[in-house]
Design a protein around this nucleic acid. Sequence first.
DNA 1: ATTAAAATTAACCATCCGGTCAGTTAATTA
DNA 2: TAATTAACTGACCGGATGGTTAATTTTAAT
Lengths: 219, 219
Amino acid sequence: MAKGTRTDRRLERGAKARQKILRAAEGVFAKHGLDGARTEAIARAAGVNKALLFYHFKSKTDLFAAVIEESAGGVHRHLMDLLSSQGPAKEILLQCVSEMIDAIARRPQNTTVFQRAMMADSKLAARTARTYFVPRTTKLAALIRRGVEEREFRPVDGRQTALLITSLIVFQFWGASVVRSLGYYDPFSKTHLKKRKQAVIDFVRYGLFRDQEVTPRDA
Amino acid sequence: MAKGTRTDRRLERGAKARQKILRAAEGVFAKHGLDGARTEAIARAAGVNKALLFYHFKSKTDLFAAVIEESAGGVHRHLMDLLSSQGPAKEILLQCVSEMIDAIARRPQNTTVFQRAMMADSKLAARTARTYFVPRTTKLAALIRRGVEEREFRPVDGRQTALLITSLIVFQFWGASVVRSLGYYDPFSKTHLKKRKQAVIDFVRYGLFRDQEVTPRDA
DNA sequence: ATTAAAATTAACCATCCGGTCAGTTAATTA
DNA sequence: TAATTAACTGACCGGATGGTTAATTTTAAT
């Protein structure tokens, strides 16, 4: 056949279905967790036969892992680069915080699935932690240590503080769906997201920095 | 029969079994979550016939709710009292932080189950949130607002900050079992607990207080 | 001693659900 | 056109699992 046709339309279609499944799975897993999710429900949400899940992914657990990689992988690699970059620790840290919050706000289900992964069966949890959580936290801790040495930060334990900052960012979204369901307010509204981001940044600045003045505002 | 016998030994035995079941359930639920937990496993861990679970608690979900009440209820009420008490907001806040960490350290599974509850089926999650999380956070927010008015704290949003502080306390235990399983260090060792507590308290102090000096050290 | 109650259990059951399989459809190749 | 291959599906299976029931044991009341 003509060499111009680079893409086998069968493969193309397959890839598309794969994506549909991943998106559907993300939603169902976010809502119900690994154990709570029904493969049937995922298939229905994706508009696809259930057997197709097992054709593209060999098991429910594998599908779950794929969802994580697909949804967390990109941001993760970007953050790792950012954390390794040169420049004042202050700026990098705030930039990092800001981008993490943005990333979460962009795809809230993402965070939920990730948290569920860390609470799942210990094997999967360990794998997820080793792949994403540990490397990122380690790098963040290193950045903080550097900031302390360079006298930008008050003297703190790097690892502890890395965890503290991560918690500030992540935790608020943890109960977000519950908060929303309670109807008090919408934690994902523009207004609230902005306020929250500012609160986190301020808290970090006051809690960690030696002087708050310098830090430039981010977009 | 003699009126002196206050306790029917049947009821006594029943209550004891009930407790055994609750303790066993706490462990299993902490490890596997509501959906992942097997009633069979709980029964085995409690050394009891499976049917007895359904005699004492009418469903798995009910058992789960009972576990939460049993393990979170006491501390919750204590904290609510503490948060309402008179005195400098600074002191009350730090006391509260300190006691929450102690409570968690005393029974780590507790926290895990609680978090699982908040991530469970939305009905149960909403109920748990309404019973424990919302009231506590609301009171904490009020305390912070008071502290701001009385110029002990820098001007912050009460609700946001209440969430931030809660996150500092709770989050670190979130991935604790994973961290332990990875074998890097034991997040529940005396040493680490002490360091962590200090880190949280310092972070709060610097992040929120107008001046850090005064605050008395707690036992 | 008899009856009543609460606690406990062995044996079951109906259903659910992850996963398989034998085949169908549609695109590609020769 | 025939053969090949990838994507996809309907129907099915077997084991697991939450929950029930009928009977047994244990303690108390009369």
